[in-house]
Design a protein around this nucleic acid. Sequence first.
DNA 1: CCAGACGTTGTT
DNA 2: GTCTGG
DNA 3: CCAGACGTTGTT
DNA 4: GTCTGG
Length: 265
Amino acid sequence: MLFIKLKAKFRQPAFLGYYCRFDFIMCYSTSTSVRKQLEEFLGPEYTLGGYESFWAASGFDFPALPVLTGDKPFVVQMLQWGLIPTWAKNRESALQIRAKTLNARSETIFETASFRDAVSGQRCLVLVDGFFEWQHHGKTTQPYYIHLPGATPFAIAGIHSMWTDRETGEVTDSFSIITTVANKLMSDIHNLKKRMPLILDKDQWSAWLDPALTREQITAMMTPYPDGILEAFPVSKLISSRHKNVNVPEVQQRIDLVKPGLLEF
DNA sequence: CCAGACGTTGTT
DNA sequence: GTCTGG
DNA sequence: CCAGACGTTGTT
DNA sequence: GTCTGG
């Protein structure tokens, strides 16, 4: 059994932002500077509306996260993570199903009952500047934060769905993020499952949100992010905690591995 | 036919 | 809503 | 991933 | 120890 000892060595965060652990955790940030940073990145044609940022958000909390949809591609909307299909009969079944729809596998998305309606005409983009993934060493895990150079924001591609509660009339707009096979970096980090979120740069956003896309065109966009661009560093296991508040700056602080893990970046 | 599911991740 | 399992 | 359960009888 | 639920 291999134990990895960790020595926390905090330094100033290189940036602020929100992120999103793609499988069942995370999205980040908090200060007004983050909003400004995103505003600058998006440019004047975008409206931030009710945009809210986090240091970390767990999928199992079903948080509302900043999303662009095909209907309003230039308006940041807060949509709920955990897609509820239109056919959910009642609140109980809606809550049950959304716990299983945090991620959608790109390989089967056109066939699965929960996703196939949304993928054709209800695509969306989840705005993040990073996400977390765990590297496995025997029985232990080491979380990493994955991001672009300079904390450049990017989007995780997703699908969304409007659900109306027939008892209350309440409408919920919710989403799933799409996963694909890992690229090289993510294969090293997510060393067992070797998956990664479908990441789209800003110049691909309008194509992804175009409602006229054919199935073939959609499939063609569902590829791993190119190698050699994403960066990663190890972070404290605070991010893995279920009961502590992980929505704090510390979750994204780099730590040094006392006994180096399988990887150094 | 009806009832029940409808999903992903992970096993160094 | 639609498919599957019994 | 972690936290928490870890069971049976009888039921519209 | 191992499975399940979130």
